[in-house]
Nucleic acid binder design. Structure first.
Lengths: 357, 357
DNA sequence: CGTGGCTGTCGAATCGATTCGACAGTGAGG
DNA sequence: CCTCACTGTCGAATCGATTCGACAGCCACG
């Protein structure tokens, strides 16, 4: 009664060897049906619930757990609908493999390295955080844990899942250009997680941590050349609104006629600020986003945005992880994006056609 | 070069026994500083990243992983800000213990039992799902995995974390009663996860799966007696709006003067539907919620709601889990809630004072 | 100089399974 | 009747650490 029964106890009771009992639980075809029954019956009598996952894991060399690095506190990270979809995609694939999804949330000043040392991981997915200077990266590599990077930087031996951030933004920028916009401004997601917000200097930009952020800037520049960039300190609606209030509270002639937000969440903030300032969208201001998130509370407006397959991105990441665990060498993935034109983009105000900064 | 070095290899290289090497990595005071250095140096030379978590787990009998049962797909579950805060609280405490948080998301028709059998869990927290008929419950108990239930039903040997759902709703109901409301209606969260929506019959109610839902109904009845209840199929804004459209699209004399939504998310939907129908809040309709979530996009309205300490609930659950893992017997927790009066509740329309259904 | 008490290191048992190769038994085919 | 090919069961090695009690050596004190 003290401790749980072991496989050996069950085997003894069923009158077979432990190896046979193990085979029985593994549903191996090499064990006779009658024997299996006997083992299962013995297990039932003893209240044995199946092989201990820990022991099995040790023997197999796999824990059945894949870690997803979130980088921020869950609370903030999941305000971003894209992060959620990503995780949902990951979860879907892992579940199908009976593999668990472990969340590794960053906490301020608390690198997750001590957790990594203690928690058995079969693979790690850098889901929503850059990894260039993450100490966890070194730890994991030293441990031989396979790594998948979602929109992370290329590293040797790290599987990459990417989307066409640059091409997508370029398409969006082109769309706005064709509508006559010449004074555009970018509201960017954080370049690093250090609480900074404000206009982005070249120095700052050179130290950008996140790959997607950089690429989404480059896409705009492909069309417009250098444009002012305003960095937010967090990918949140309020941040987008705060940024836009600064950028838009100017005489019409100095105001941008279009704002390209690097995410739908930021774009939502921009729309809110515009409304507060009495600007009509898209008559006075066009707004573009990125993600294709379903922001129900924007209705009836439909955001012009670049749709990315967030869930598929998650699925691809999880598939790559499973392949790595199995010893394979998954190819890098580049997923396509598509411009979706909504009701928040329109012709530039006529007085502004072809005017530049 | 083929496989990772083991502790034994490091010990050999350092010229000590494996036991001493183990002590060195555990930072035991019983090992001489010089020896520790030697071991660490040997480890560095061999590229040994520390003891294998799996082997350590087996020996210790703990995996360092706690599972949180989510019940729904992540995508839907985390649309609920309360679920997020709860998880954030859990994550915070677990991190502090270097314990990992594993997400067990339910998928339609896919009980997570097969995952449970394969993944080593030190404890399980039923975070956002009832557990009465959950097959996972039996599995876990058979395995001897300690269980914490957040607002779940009382079970022997299961630690309970609860909030005063009934008392809180009662206070809210009292507030509305005092404002003269007599025709109130409840928009309820799902009683079970089976996609049902519509008026709640006594039969349906008797089969309610979720404890908090039941208690939040009882709180209203404590003040108003039996009231009509409309069940939604999911705790989402759209669902709240859909329900409210049905309840409110009536002549003023038949319409409820107040709607008590069982969550802030549902309440947000109710507000939206009211706006669509041209009803002024709180002049024509008062709306109350539950949770105290920050729904920024409701601004400038401030929802009258019952504030619950969601993060603390998560922290308490995680603390209970850690205590159970350590062999303790944590006391059940009942957290207080508080009515927060906002701008969505006001006096009942005068013609309706004291009129009843 | 003998002995008691510390400090630091080591042996060996243990955690609970998986799995490979060996082997016994059985039925069929020559 | 002998042998070959299966089928099903078993032994034993292994996965990689942790931990308790034993023990050796050293210093200090009597």
């Amino acid at each position: 009664m003290s401790s749980r029964p072991t496989l050996a106890a069950v085997a003894a009771r069923a009158g077979v060897s432990p190896s046979t009992a193990s085979l029985a639980f593994a549903d191996s075809p090499r064990v006779a049906p009658a024997t299996r029954e006997r083992v299962l019956a013995a297990a039932a009598e003893l209240g044995y619930a199946g092989p201990d996952p820990l022991a099995a894991s040790l023997r197999r060399g796999r824990s059945g757990v894949v870690g997803a690095f979130i980088g921020e506190r869950l609370l903030y990270a999941f305000r971003d609908p894209v992060a959620l979809q990503l995780l949902d995609g990951i979860s879907e694939v892992l579940s199908a493999h009976d593999v668990g999804l472990l969340l590794l949330a960053g906490d301020v000043g608390r690198p997750s390295t001590s957790q990594i040392a203690r928690i058995p991981l079969d693979a790690a997915i850098f889901a929503t955080c850059g990894l260039e200077d993450d100490p966890a990266l070194g730890q994991l590599r030293a441990r031989g844990v396979p790594i998948v990077a979602v929109e992370g930087p290329a590293f040797e031996g790290v599987a990459m899942i990417d989307i066409d951030d640059r091409g997508g933004t370029r398409e969006l920028a082109r769309h706005l250009y064709d509508l006559g916009h010449r004074r555009v401004e970018v509201v960017a997601m954080p370049l690093r997680l250090d609480g900074t917000r404000g206009p982005v200097t070249p120095q700052r930009r050179a130290r950008a941590h996140y790959r997607d952020v950089r690429h989404r800037i480059e896409g705009v520049e492909d069309v417009f050349g250098p444009v002012p960039i305003y960095e937010t300190s967090s990918n949140a609606v309020d941040e987008g609104a705060a940024a836009a209030r600064l950028l838009l509270d100017l005489p019409a002639a100095q105001r941008p006629t279009a704002i390209i937000a690097q995410s739908d969440v930021l774009a939502a903030g921009v729309l809110r600020a515009a409304a507060e300032l009495g600007l009509r969208v898209p008559d006075d201001l066009s707004v573009g986003g990125f993600d294709g998130a379903d922001l129900h509370w924007l209705a009836p407006a439909r955001l012009t945005t670049v749709v990315q397959p967030s869930e598929e991105k998650g699925r691809a990441a999880a598939r790559a992880a499973m392949e790595l665990v199995a010893g394979g060498d998954p190819a890098d993935v580049l997923l396509p994006v598509a411009l979706r034109i909504g009701t928040t983009s329109g012709r530039a105000p006529s007085s502004d056609r072809s005017a530049r900064w």
